[in-house]
Each structure stands twice: as structure tokens, then as C-alpha cells.
Design a protein around this nucleic acid. Structure first.
Lengths: 363, 363
DNA sequence: TTGTAAGCGTTATCAC
DNA sequence: GTGATAACGCTTACAA
């Protein structure tokens, strides 16, 4: 610990230049690694910088270059392992390309998202990755695009925003497959639980807070039900179940209906834990009393008994793709289609069985 | 979408001032909300700013004020739900106090941590929260402190860094309790598995990459074993088991020993999943064939059968405390003790039982 | 209250 | 190659 204790004012290029007895511009060229500098000067400057404990001021640098080498990421809930894993995909990719990451957590609140977008613009991030909280209220997103900063949407797309990059999975298709799987086992009363709100959809009027991934899943489920000739199937859809007690309350309410669902699809792993916990609380077992499918696949899903039938998404890859795409945009390289849809897969395990009482026409 | 499409150069205070027909400084005062401005001018400036689509340049602002309203967070693995939850505590607290958060993920690699520290200093963050990857290699951390920026250590402390703030849990105590619990059930062969390396400890020579939380846990376990008269107990300690197949390999190796452990303690939930998965693979059941305890408590631990006996840490609160403490330092308010130790609790569930063959002296 | 002018620490431009 | 000097967009004296 011999370094000179740098106090008060930071050491600047001017200080280094003086110490190395060269002009400020020369020192700057050497330190910044641009322009041409003689070996002799380079060494003197290097020595002076080290002696003084020089640290470049990134703010000043960014101010002239106009680039901050930073990307802003705005997600709904970093506690959700889905976003944790996607975030690792993003940070891994960003770091490899020389970018830093600023993170904002919105709690899926639109105003927090708007706020974060403004702050990030003020911080002059080079680009944005956003998992938008609303399908329709996207003025702040179009502001971002108008500001000339690249924007990549993660996990969800929005209405009325042309040519925006989107990285998402084929929610409708896989949700349809999941519902079909349940229908094939004889289920007609299938519940779907999410903490988010329903997006633009024929089945709801005020859709201001909706999210596309949710409406896609709902559409997939309802389409399958419809084809199977089941009607009034939307009665088991539950939105806005905030994590924790909210999910448990919704689960209880559902299972106490006169005609409770015979199968439940949970929209993410956090919800799944709440649902499964409450089912156990209610003395109900999976899949004997109720079948169960969850979105996302983490190893604990295979450790539970019964092992959970899940919808596996390439989460890390989605993060990587979002960051890759964003950085390509930032650096002026446009690659591939703006909308990139990853497949998700229904992984059959043991949490789905024919319903208890009716319709035991096993396929 | 009527906003004028701001192109090329950003709108500056000068532009707004010209539009509002006032001096640059006046417009700046009004926009920045400092100094005194007449209502008349305030309105004209406001109107001009909106018309032009002005967005403050935070970089320029930070450059004069010397403050960026940003805190840098450096963690080992954001994918680990522990850090995900702690991160939420940090971001929630930071946002409430008007701070943004920059995140760096090191993969527990020291060089990545050093790099991140340098970059964050260059970005002029107001303070640091770091979960250090090494107990002893901390020059970059003392550099941070010498630069005059507050630093709070999260989850782990380090050697040779005086007066640094630390927020951690009482790992040694709770690890001792966990081991004692196993010993009371008759276990003498207790394994401990972590992805990290062992910190400064009498039981290892080269401790450069060690982490204090790990050595504290090891010390707690070995102390309990020692008191119980068990020797050579360190033979079941496993460090540096990288997540995924690494953990599984270590688990297999342990269970294939001539004298395999009769109990396993996993150092976090990610490791626990790997261990439990491999145990099942090996056809071993918990707790009949081997007892099991994991650090961290997430709801899936209660959904598994048997429900997992765990060591519950106040993770979110640790994040909140770290951010709170850091912000207090940044703002010149020094509150409480530099080292804050939170309690952790052993939560008894069903994954611990007496060992199969020997020592069935149940307490 | 408002205006003028001088910084903040870089990079960029243009001579030499 | 190297050295002056002007930006970058804001805040902060200091006057008026």
C-alpha cells in the first residue's frame, strides 16, 4: 500500500503532462492511445501517470466522443431468476465487446420505467435494452428511438413502434402446445396465473398496462381451448397477481371455486413457487388433484416430486442475442431481422395427469 | 408521436436559452433547478425546452458537480438468486435516494473485478458496493478508498483494509450451528461444497483467492467437529466447484469415496440444485442415504421432498443495509458501526436424519 | 433576478 | 511527432 494517497482533486492529463514535461495534448494522446507518440515520450508519460496515480475521467472523455460505452438495461424484476439469467447473458456479451451495463429495476411499474429511460438518456447511454411494462404506453420508448439511440426490446414487443428490434420467444406457439397437452389429457378447466397484466387482446378492454408475452400466452391457450370446443375458458385466467401472498391468494380463490380448475399454468418460476406452496397448504397434490405446468426451467423443477412439466426458454441466449443486436446497432452494423423469435419447448415430466373426476378420455 | 425528431446534435441549454431569449446561465439555472429565477422566465424556458425536446446532459453536469449520482455494484454472479435478491435491495434503496446503479458481473474472477473497479472509477461513480472475490488481493479496493470514494463490502470482508464498511452475516456461528445439528444426529462425516475458494485459514497455504464467507463457514463447521472429537474432518471440504457439471462431479466423487460423507452442506442454492440432482442420479435419497443442508432459503426448498433444512439469510436486508450505509457515507453522514453483522438462522425441516449405518445416537 | 465569463478534463483540429 | 487551442455542455463565481 505505497500508492500516494490521491486527495481532493483528481489527477488530470495536465498534471501528467507537466510531470512528464510534454504538452497536454501529447500526454493525452499517449494516455488515450490515439494519435502518434514516440516511444520515448510514451514511456515518460506512462511513468508520470503511474507516479501520480492518474485515472482517466470517463465523463470528460464521453463528453467529447459522444460515446459512453455503456448500455442501459431496464427490467421488471431482477429478483426473478428469468431476468437474472438474461442479465448474465447481457453482461457477458457487453463485457466481451467492451461495454458496461447500467441496470434499472422497475418492479413492472410504468412510471419507474419512464423515469429510468429519462435518467439513462441523461447519462448518455449508447443504447437501451428494455423489457417494457406496457404494450401500448410507449412514448418514452419512441423518445429513446428519436434521440437516435438504438433500442432492443427484451421478452416483449409493443404496439405502434415501427422497426424496433425485438428479441423474444414464441410464446403463443408454446402456450398453445402446453394447453393442447393438457386438453389431450382430458382437461377443460385450465387456469393461467401471471403477475403481469393482459396485453392488447379481444378479451379485455382497458389494455394500457398489458404485456405482449402475456397476451401471446393467453392467445395460445385460448386458441387451443377454442379448437377443442371448450367455451368460457377465459374464466380461469388471472392477471396482476403480485408475487408473494398475492399469488397464494389467487391460487386459493381459484381452487375454492365451485368448479375449480383441473390444471394450472404458472407464468414464471416465482409464481410457480407461490402456487405450489399454496396447493400444498390446501392439501392438494400434483398431479392427482391438479395438473401443473410452469414457464421457465430451473433445476429445482426436476427435484420436486413430481418433477415439473415446464416450458423451457433459452433465457441466457435471449440475453446474449439482445446485447449482440444492440451493440451491432450501436456500432452501425445492422445484422439480420429486427424481430428475432426464439423457440421455447414444452418439457414433459410428471406434473401433468388426467383430471380426477371428469373427461378421462386419455389420448 | 408529434415530438420533433431530434437529430444529430443534442439540444443544449444554449439552444433553449436562445429560444427563450435569455442568457445561457439563466436557462441553465431554470433547467437545473438551482439559483433564483423569475416565474416569467421559468415558464418561457420550460416552454422552449419542451418545444425543442431538451434533455439534460448528465455527463456534463457530473463533470462540474463532481457527483454522478451513481453507485457501482460489483458481484460474482448475478445469476445466483442470492445476488439477485441482494441486488433488488440495493436498487430499491438507491432509487429511493435518487441514485442509479451500475452493475458488473465478475464470474468471481479477480481480474474482472479489478477491471470493473477501474472502469467504475473512470466513470466517476459516487461509491462502491463490492462482494470481493479475494480475501487478500485487495489493492484495487484500497485504490478505491484512496480515491476518496466510499466503499461498502457485501457478504464478505477482506484482510488488511482498515475502516472499510462491511455488511455480512454471521457465517461462522450459523455454520457451527448447522454442523452441530448434524453432529447431534450422529454425523461425523460432513461434507461442505462451494464454488468459491477457501479464504485465509490455517487449513490451507495459498489463500490468495479465498473468500471470507467461505472460511468463516469452514471454521464454524470444523470447530464443531473438533469439539465433538472428530478428527481429519477437513477431508470432506470441497472448494472451487464451478457451477453446473463441476458441482455434480464433485458430488459424485464424494459419494464414491470408500467412506462417503453422511451429510452434505451446500454453500448456496445453485450448488444445492447441482448436488441434489446428482444424488438423485446416483440413486441416493435424502435424508435416508445422506443428510442435506443448504445455505439460502428459497420457496422451492419447501416444495421439494423432503423439505430442505436450510440456513436462512436476510439477503434483501443485507442489500438494503449496504446501499443505505454507502449512501450515508457518500452524503457525509456516518452512521453506526463500520461492520454490520446480520444473523442467519438454521431452519429445521426434513432433510436431516441420523446416518444410515453408524453412530445412531440420536440426541 | 439576470448576464458575462471562467472553469471541469477530455478529445479534435490545425499548424509547426 | 509535437504543441497550442478550440470545442463538448454544463455549473459556478462575479458583476450588473
Amino acid at each position: 500500500m505505497n500508492e500516494p494517497t490521491a486527495r481532493r482533486r483528481d489527477v488530470t492529463v495536465a498534471d501528467v503532462a507537466r510531470e512528464a514535461k510534454v504538452a497536454k495534448a501529447t500526454a493525452a494522446r499517449s494516455l488515450g492511445g490515439y494519435g502518434a507518440v514516440s516511444d520515448d515520450v510514451r514511456q515518460r508519460v506512462q511513468a508520470a501517470a503511474e507516479a501520480l496515480g492518474y485515472h482517466a475521467n470517463g465523463l470528460a472523455r464521453s463528453m467529447n466522443t459522444g460515446r459512453s460505452n455503456t448500455i442501459g438495461v431496464i427490467v421488471g424484476d431482477i429478483e426473478n431468476p428469468y431476468f437474472g439469467l438474461a442479465m448474465r447473458g447481457i453482461t457477458d456479451t457487453a463485457k466481451a465487446a467492451g461495454y458496461d451495463v447500467i441496470l434499472a429495476n422497475t418492479g413492472e411499474q410504468l412510471d419507474a420505467e419512464i423515469d429510468a429511460a429519462r435518467v439513462f438518456v441523461e447519462k448518455r447511454v449508447d443504447g437501451f435494452i428494455v423489457a417494457p411494462a406496457s404494450f401500448t404506453l410507449t412514448d418514452h420508448l419512441s423518445d429513446i428511438m428519436h434521440s437516435g439511440r438504438p433500442l432492443v426490446l427484451l421478452d416483449r414487443h409493443v404496439a405502434n413502434l415501427d422497426d424496433v428490434d425485438v428479441i423474444e420467444v414464441d410464446n403463443e406457439k408454446v402456450a398453445h402446445a402446453a394447453a393442447q397437452h393438457l386438453i389431450d389429457r382430458g382437461h377443460e378447466r385450465i387456469a393461467f396465473i401471471t403477475t403481469l397484466e393482459l396485453g392488447s387482446n379481444p378479451y379485455q378492454a382497458g389494455d394500457e398496462l398489458g404485456v405482449s408475452s402475456v397476451s401471446a400466452r393467453v392467445n395460445g391457450i385460448l386458441a387451443a381451448m377454442n379448437t377443442a370446443g371448450v367455451d368460457n375458458s377465459e374464466r380461469y385466467l388471472r392477471f396482476g397477481a403480485n408475487s408473494g401472498s398475492g399469488v397464494k391468494g389467487v391460487t386459493r380463490e381459484l381452487m375454492q371455486l365451485e368448479e375449480p380448475p383441473t390444471a394450472i399454468i404458472a407464468s414464471d418460476s416465482l409464481i410457480a413457487m407461490g402456487v405450489l406452496g399454496e396447493l400444498r397448504e390446501l392439501g392438494l397434490t400434483v398431479p392427482d388433484d391438479v395438473s401443473f405446468i410452469m414457464f421457465d426451467d430451473f433445476e429445482w423443477a426436476t427435484l420436486i416430486s413430481p418433477a415439473l412439466t415446464v416450458i423451457a426458454q433459452p433465457v441466457y441466449e435471449v440475453g446474449v442475442a439482445a446485447a449482440t443486436r444492440l451493440i451491432a446497432r450501436i456500432e452501425g452494423r445492422v445484422t439480420g431481422e429486427p424481430i428475432q423469435v426464439f423457440p421455447a419447448a414444452l418439457v414433459h415430466r410428471k406434473s401433468v395427469a388426467p383430471p380426477r373426476v371428469v373427461g378421462r378420455d386419455d389420448a
